[in-house]
Design a protein around this nucleic acid. Structure first.
Lengths: 221, 221
DNA sequence: ACAAAATCTATTGTATACAATCGTGAATTT
DNA sequence: AAATTCACGATTGTATACAATAGATTTTGT
């Protein structure tokens, strides 16, 4: 094996386009209903339509775009109905996943997440810190899963949740601090349950957290 | 709206190729590990590689193919591990879906399915009759679901189950009659629970049926 | 004879060109 | 004037051509 520099795997254009569009949809830059014309994207990114098409197909299967045959792709709507669907899925799958993951989560990992959560509490104004910590915790709950169907579905649902969340951040900025604070408390409760290695406690803590998250995002009074 | 004959929607080639390959993978004609070369398929179907590629991408997302970048697509393995994953997903989702669907299922539908099941019992040698009836029952449990994430996932999992089942039909033909007979009894139990509109009964009947189905297929002694 | 490097080949990845289709609006008919 | 038909433009669907890469084969150096 003569060659070195074997490390950096060259990602295909379709992958890059996929990640780019996905990010922009999740962040809200590409709003629901936005038309995604292949040639527009092709010109913008200075590449051909071929990888664009493949990326749009990938996004459709994730539920981020809707493709009408011979009409084109648009960014999927983020209606209240859709949000219900997302949270329904998470409500079914994530508590189960958490219990299943329990034996795969190390003590060190728990301590690290716990530590990061404390930092969040100490810096209530750092949104990025909160988002990262939130991601870290939820990924901990399913990143070790061997069942890729379960894992992929959960990751996708989480991505959708993120998109929904931004909608709230933008429309109702005042209450953000409160949301974070409550959510963080629930996160700590989940960690506590994990430490005790009590299946029912874990299941209930995750389920409760999801329910409350859903309520907070759907009706952030 | 002057035009008639608006009914027949012309399916795209990618859709046709997708359905064709999916069917052949599920039926076992295309065995696990089989390479799916774009040009081979392109020649076989007398079309260009473009729609083939898109179909292969779609199949990958369903979990029917595995695509290694710059190497190509192969039919996904059907290992015991994979089978566990499929049934784990169904075990989580389908009982929930059944309960959720309960109010959406009409009395007539239940009677029709029940009637078809009786026909199956009267013709224990008709495999097609059994398969159709099995499909009818399970589809009844989620075809009315509005949550497309849940519905699509379940449909996909069911397709995977079918593929796994054929593996058994082919390797262990002797026991087939018994399997059908037991399964049919469980189906009747589910219908009974639906008629009583008892959530817990429905949940448990579906869950139990899935567990037993799994055992029957994974170790058809 | 063996290992490393260079070349060749098969196959996917990407770009471009062409065909088919849908919507729109003008022209035409009644 | 209303409705129908026709033709055009915009956009996706499909085909083909070209580029890049991984793996196999051959060549070369010691």
């Amino acid at each position: 094996m003569g060659r070195l520099a074997e490390i950096g795997n060259i990602p295909s254009l379709k992958q890059l386009v996929y990640e780019n569009l996905r990010e922009r949809i999740i962040s809200g830059e590409l709003e629901p209903g936005t038309r995604l014309r292949e040639e527009d994207l092709s010109e913008e990114m200075k590449i051909s339509r071929a990888p664009i098409r493949e990326a749009l197909n990938m996004l459709e299967r994730d539920g981020f775009t809707v493709i009408v045959p011979r009409k084109g792709a648009i960014v999927a709507e983020a209606t209240e109905e859709e949000r219900d669907y997302i949270w329904e899925m998470r409500g079914i799958l994530e508590p189960y996943a958490a219990v299943k993951s329990m034996p795969l989560i190390s003590e060190e990992k728990i301590r690290k997440v716990e530590n990061d959560l404390k930092k969040v509490q100490e810096n209530p104004d750092d949104l990025k810190l909160y988002m990262d910590s939130d991601l870290e915790l939820h990924e901990m709950l399913y990143q070790n899963l061997k069942n890729h169907f379960l894992k992929d579905t959960l990751e996708n649902m989480r991505a959708h949740s993120l998109r929904m969340r931004w909608a709230v951040e933008n429309t109702c900025p005042g209450k953000r601090g409160d949301i974070e604070s409550e959510s963080t408390k629930e996160h700590l409760k989940i960690l506590e349950a994990l430490k005790q290695k009590d299946e029912k406690l874990v299941y209930d803590a995750v389920y409760e957290h999801l329910q409350k998250s859903k309520d907070r995002i759907l009706s952030p009074k």
